[in-house]
């Protein structure tokens, strides 16, 4: 599985650490209700199909990426820097 890092080009999956769904980008405010924190930390859409998730290029440029991926086929459509991704807060 090759992940197209915007800075390093296509790199082997082994260079990356997977965190989870891109939901982690939408961190609630510190004073948000407990339900918002529960949703942020635990509840997931968990799609069978197209998904966006967070990968860390640990053994490369050390950037956080949002990878667009298919969970059924493992096909990777693209990757963007997490700071510039459309769903970044």
């Amino acid at each position: 599985m090759l992940i197209p890092c915007p800075l390093c080009g296509p790199r082997d999956r082994r260079e990356f650490y997977y965190l989870g769904a891109a939901d982690y980008l939408r961190r609630p405010a510190a004073d948000a209700a407990p339900a918002a924190w529960d949703a942020y930390l635990h509840l997931r859409g968990n799609p069978a199909g197209e998904t966006r998730d967070l990968w860390y290029h640990e053994a490369g440029c050390q950037a956080w990426l949002v990878v667009s991926r298919n969970t059924v086929t493992h096909a990777i459509a693209g990757a963007a820097l997490a700071g510039e991704a459309a769903d970044a807060a």
Partner: peptide, 18 residues
Amino acid sequence: GRSSQVAAMAGLRLPIES
């Protein structure tokens, strides 16, 4: 294995990642 999809039919969002 398909919990999130079936639960979504009842409007539920689960604390599950497959």
